[in-house]
Measured scan of single mutants.
Amino acid sequence: MQRVNMIMAESPGLITICLLGYLLSAECTVFLDHENANKILNRPKRYNSGKLEEFVQGNLERECMEEKCSFEEAREVFENTERTTEFWKQYVDGDQCESNPCLNGGSCKDDINSYECWCPFGFEGKNCELDVTCNIKNGRCEQFCKNSADNKVVCSCTEGYRLAENQKSCEPAVPFPCGRVSVSQTSKLTRAETVFPDVDYVNSTEAETILDNITQSTQSFNDFTRVVGGEDAKPGQFPWQVVLNGKVDAFCGGSIVNEKWIVTAAHCVETGVKITVVAGEHNIEETEHTEQKRNVIRIIPHHNYNAAINKYNHDIALLELDEPLVLNSYVTPICIADKEYTNIFLKFGSGYVSGWGRVFHKGRSALVLQYLRVPLVDRATCLRSTKFTIYNNMFCAGFHEGGRDSCQGDSGGPHVTEVEGTSFLTGIISWGEECAMKGKYGIYTKVSRYVNWIKEKTKLT
């Protein structure tokens, strides 16, 4: 034993070699072989497995989906700052455009905790909710729209109204504003409101030439003092309507412009014939205590009207009353817009006519005020429907199939267009061939041609 100890002390290297040989010859039971080890760690190889990531292109799944990435790591994937920024906006807080917040056709661009709407022409605001041009839906104005110097929408209202708090709607500024039905039992019968379409306001006024200088022999019209197929109006439903009495009662109609003036057809009036105007009328054979009678003290036909040349060209006249009318729910003026808007309103496509005229061709006159909704007829169809001249200051309205029309005794009465609950004068009943005849239409004086003249002559002093 002493000898062994001496050998170990003198030859430590020998001992180490012996131990190493023993270990190498022993069977290893701690580690699995290569094949079995792979069965336990069965993990798919990654895209760049075996390579240094710093030297390969980034992978979106590896960089940002398996674990949260930084902007720089995302930049490695896209290799483009702009594309990385677009991805980053949604990656950080989701897609803010998912709810489609942009209105009126706006395009949404996502941002971090926010979004941006790219608005089409005519709109602005956070969600493109603000109209900035009158060309689109009248700028959301209830009545009139004008573009300011910086191309912003400025709404306005006709006389007797003021802008509401929203700067879009119009509200009454006087007790009985024009064009409004205020009798409670008839307010439910107000005709369907007309909503502004998209309009090209630059070209809204037709490029028409008034044929002022045409000389033409007097034409022989049949029954051209021209509501057939209409309905009984309720008291106060058309408070701007008046009836004219002269040699015979209810020979023509008219509309209240203001307390002192009536507008009617020029062919209705004769110099030297006494005319009485009755406002607030409903049943011409009954006294309903809503009527107001006034005498006409002055007749002003349009300066281009000449019955000797043509009885229905420039067929418009103004009547001055001896005493002002007292405005109330049964006696209310009709609204008159400017030339541009009167023309736009007419193009809405349908209007209402009213009167006490004959209820059928050569038949009896109506006792109760009649009204009828009539569609506008395109000019080409209008011209083809008659052998008589249709001037540019006239328009056609009615039904091709016949059966409904204005008729004798309705002449001078109103053709009105309702705009968001307020009625505007767009025409004056003038003439036609018979009444409600198939293929024939009622012919009306186009008020847009005469609004400046009306307003100039009827100013209240």
Rank of each mutant, 00 (worst) to 15 (best):
S217T: 11
F388N: 10
N393W: 05
L460C: 12
T422I: 14
V243W: 10
N310F: 04
I284T: 11
T29R: 08
N304Q: 13
N203L: 10
G125R: 00
G349C: 02
K152R: 12
F71T: 15
P333Q: 04
H415W: 02
E79M: 13
K339I: 07
F87S: 15
N295D: 12
G413E: 02
T84I: 04
M6E: 06
A436S: 14
K459F: 07
V227S: 12
W453I: 00
L321P: 00
E27F: 03
I390M: 06
E73I: 07
E323F: 11
V353T: 09
I454P: 00
I112S: 07
G21P: 05
G21H: 06
T84A: 12
F224A: 14
R43M: 14
G403D: 15
V202P: 14
F87W: 15
I344T: 10
D200L: 10
V374E: 01
D223W: 07
V263L: 09
N393G: 14
E66Y: 04
S114F: 05
G21M: 14
N328M: 02
L14Y: 06
R62E: 03
T16Y: 11
C18R: 03
A173C: 05
K455M: 07
V56R: 08
Y371M: 15
Y312C: 04
G402I: 13
Y371D: 03
Y91R: 11
V263Q: 02
T190E: 10
E159D: 11
S350K: 12
I284E: 05
S385A: 14
L319H: 01
K260Y: 07
K89V: 08
P235A: 10
M8H: 12
T386I: 12
P414Y: 06
S70D: 06
E323D: 10
L23F: 13
V257I: 05
G160A: 02
I17H: 03
V451C: 08
K89W: 05
R3A: 12
P44F: 06
L367M: 05
V451G: 04
S217I: 12
A279Q: 00
N104M: 02
K126S: 10
G363C: 04
C252S: 00
S365L: 08
L189I: 14
E231A: 12
R191W: 07
E434M: 12
I284Y: 08
V92Y: 06
D410M: 15
V368D: 04
E35K: 08
V277I: 12
F71E: 15
G272F: 06
A9R: 15
S182I: 08
V181M: 13
V278T: 12
R43E: 10
G106A: 06
I309F: 10
Y391L: 15
A337L: 01
L383M: 08
Y47H: 14
G403L: 10
T445F: 03
F55D: 09
I284V: 11
E456R: 12
P324G: 05
E288H: 07
H314E: 03
A266G: 04
E340L: 09
F395Y: 03
K311C: 03
F78E: 15
G254R: 01
S217C: 06
V4L: 12
E418L: 10
E259A: 08
A366P: 13
K362F: 05
D95C: 03
C178N: 01
G21Y: 13
E418I: 12
T342E: 03
C134N: 02
S448W: 02
E79Q: 14
V377G: 02
S114K: 07
N42D: 13
K109Q: 09
D212I: 10
P44G: 11
G355V: 09
I316M: 03
V227F: 13
H361D: 13
F87Y: 15
C170P: 02
T190N: 06
V451S: 13
I300N: 03
E401R: 15
C28L: 02
T84Q: 09
D338Q: 05
V326W: 07
P177K: 01
K387W: 05
T422M: 03
G58A: 08
S184T: 08
G357E: 13
F123A: 03
K455N: 08
V374T: 06
S411A: 11
R384D: 07
R384N: 09
F399H: 12
T389S: 07
F238R: 04
E165H: 11
L52H: 15
A279L: 01
E420S: 10
G442A: 14
Y441D: 00
K438I: 06
N59L: 04
F196G: 12
E79H: 13
T215H: 07
G402M: 15
F71P: 12
M65A: 12
I316T: 01
E116C: 04
T133N: 12
D200Y: 07
I443A: 05
Q96P: 06
V202T: 13
N258D: 04
S350A: 12
K234V: 12
F221P: 13
E285I: 11
L244W: 00
M65H: 15
L318N: 00
G253L: 08
R140P: 04
T81S: 09
H302C: 02
F71R: 15
I210K: 08
D378V: 03
S148D: 09
N245V: 09
L163S: 03
G13I: 14
P101N: 03
D212K: 09
F238I: 06
E54I: 12
D378L: 04
C128D: 01
D150R: 09
F196K: 13
C141K: 00
Y352G: 04
V447Y: 00
C382I: 03
A164P: 01
